[in-house]
């Protein structure tokens, strides 16, 4: 024998709780949501009224949709800053077609916006996956480029609610069984994407890529194709969010959704998706969107200065990241002691 190494370890029990806690990172955000609604509702019961909750759901639907898409990208250790511009482009484009060509059926307009968004996502995907431009830089570039196209297309024009068909605007305000339609659309997409990420090979491969890109290549994963697909899917969802924006707000111009990409990334990170990829779920991201929107509404109900809301959102973001980091350190310490125990 040439080496002194450890004898076979016995399997250990009693590790279930730690593992479950590390896996259910969404738990924290659910607690935060409960606290938010509990405290605000106690101070002002109208916050918990059906109308108020419906408003919160409606307001968070678009951000949550974008957060779902962004999660696909962030999980692969990339990021897409250009989504707000894609929303702007598709939202304005869709509204313009509806206003100028009322004969085009609404489903065609929606499909067109999704396709346009997917095309924008494909450009991002090509830059990141094929040309190997870091995602942060590539999508910062397309953030300006897509917005520029939007400005040129609009030429200063604004589309008003009066210009668009009633049936389209109704999509933005309709409720089914008391739940806003837009929230239902987001929920459907959320469930579908969440299921795919968990149960399909392609979904698991996105996590693998973000967790260790080199190992993903060695495992035979088609990394470029998968990263490309994540960007395309994100673009398509941003396109869908663009239509939702037009239907919800009615009045659109070339500046639609400017700056919203950071809200979305904040929601994703607050929702427990690791910013360096490899872990987190779309459910967490959607909950993050719901929490940030809920806080905005709660602060209004609590009569907190609107200007302070941004600062509070920022503090929350930092708190989420610090909490995540502390949890990671705790887990590392527990693993340390556990390994030691196992070694005995």
């Amino acid at each position: 024998m040439t080496a002194l190494t450890e004898a076979t370890r016995p399997g250990a029990g009693g590790r279930g709780l730690i593992d479950r806690l590390t896996r259910v990172r969404e738990l924290g955000i659910v607690l935060a949501l409960a606290a938010l609604f509990g405290v605000t509702g106690a101070v002002n019961p109208s916050f918990l009224s059906v109308g108020s909750i419906r408003d919160i759901l409606l307001n968070s639907a678009i951000v949550a949709m974008l957060a779902v898409g962004q999660t696909l990208v962030i999980v692969t250790r990339n990021v897409d800053l250009s989504i707000s511009s894609i929303v702007g482009l598709t939202g304005f484009g869709g509204a313009l077609v509806l206003a100028d060509h009322p004969a085009v059926p609404i489903p065609v307009v929606i499909a067109g916006c999704v396709t346009l968004g997917a095309a924008c996502g494909a450009i991002n995907g090509l830059l990141v996956g094929m040309a190997k431009v870091p995602a942060l830089v590539a999508t910062l570039g397309t953030l300006y480029a897509f917005r520029g196209i939007d400005y040129a297309w609009a030429g200063g024009r604004q589309v008003n609610a009066a210009d668009m068909p009633e049936s389209f605007l109704a999509l933005g305000s309709r409720s089914v069984l008391g739940v806003p339609l837009l929230a239902l659309v987001t929920l459907t997409v959320l469930l579908a994407v969440g299921w795919m990420l968990r149960n399909l090979r392609s979904g698991r491969e996105l996590y693998a890529i973000g967790s260790n890109p080199d190992a993903a290549l060695l495992a035979g994963i088609r990394v470029r194709r998968r990263v490309m697909a994540a960007f395309v899917a994100n673009g398509a969802l941003a396109g869908l969010a663009g239509v939702m924006w037009a239907a919800r707000f009615g009045t659109v111009d070339a500046t639609v959704a400017t700056g919203r990409e950071l809200d979305v990334i904040a929601a994703v990170v607050v929702g427990g998706v690791a910013i360096f990829g490899g872990s987190g779920t779309v459910f967490g991201a959607a909950l993050g969107a719901l929490l940030l929107t809920g806080i905005t509404s709660a602060l209004a109900v609590l009569r907190v200065d609107a200007l302070a809301q941004t600062a509070i959102n920022g503090a929350l973001l930092i708190a989420a990241i610090v909490l995540d980091r502390l949890l990671a350190l705790r887990v590392a310490g527990t693993l340390r002691r556990r390994r030691y125990r196992d070694a005995r």
Partner: peptide, 29 residues
């Protein structure tokens, strides 16, 4: 390989079968 090439965020079983997971008839893992 000489250096382990694992995915730290994923479970051991996912590490073993990544890209080749057994699937049901409907494509689900």
């Amino acid at each position: 390989y000489q250096e382990p090439t694992l995915f730290p965020d994923l479970s051991i079983v996912e590490n073993i079968f990544m890209g080749r997971q057994p699937r049901t008839r409907f494509g689900r893992i």
